[in-house]
């Protein structure tokens, strides 16, 4: 299956970037530059932007997309009270991501936009290229929904 030996000189470009100095830390950091750096002009925030507490101030530019809101936003604000080396920073963020998923489904419904889970999850592609996996997935969802509805019915009785 594999080539056991080959004439390396016939491989286009073989060895053209060989660099004996690159062993192992050159050239990722140019220590010749005795640099201190300067700050670019500061972008002005128009929305709430959460800032790492490992920074003294906002970076000169930042994204303004999706400011924190709702319960997930509260969790994100809590997370950003802790440094990036602590689980109490990352775990609330992961939890906030999952909560926001449901918040946004509710928001979609409020706006009259029912999420099309089949299209959003690439159902068309799965139907075309991997029908067994799609059928298995749909069956699992149907069985899960059936079990949950039965459990609710029993609870209501």
């Amino acid at each position: 299956m594999n080539l056991v030996s080959k004439n390396l000189n016939t491989l286009e470009g073989w060895g053209i970037d060989a660099n004996p100095e690159n062993d192992p830390t050159y050239p990722m950091r140019d220590r010749d530059n005795n640099v201190t750096g300067t700050r670019p002009t500061q972008q002005i925030a128009r929305v709430e932007v959460l800032q790492s507490i490992e920074r003294p101030h906002y970076t000169a530019v930042f994204g303004e997309t999706i400011p924190p809101s709702g319960l997930s936003g509260q969790l994100r604000r809590y997370a950003f009270q802790h440094s990036e080396s602590r689980y109490r920073h990352w775990l609330p963020l992961l939890l906030a991501d999952r909560i926001q998923e449901y918040e946004e489904i509710i928001n979609d419904v409020k706006k009259g936009k029912i999420p099309n889970f089949y299209a959003e999850t690439g159902g068309k592609a799965m139907w075309r290229y991997d029908k067994p996996a799609l059928i298995k997935k749909v069956a699992c969802v149907a069985i899960g929904a059936f079990i949950i509805s039965c459990a609710f019915k029993r609870l209501l009785k």
Binding site: M28, R29, N33, V35, T59, V61, F62
Partner: peptide
Amino acid sequence: LQGLYANCHEANTMAT
């Protein structure tokens, strides 16, 4: 300035 453009310190407020 050291060529570490991937590690720019002025582009990510949310993490260091």
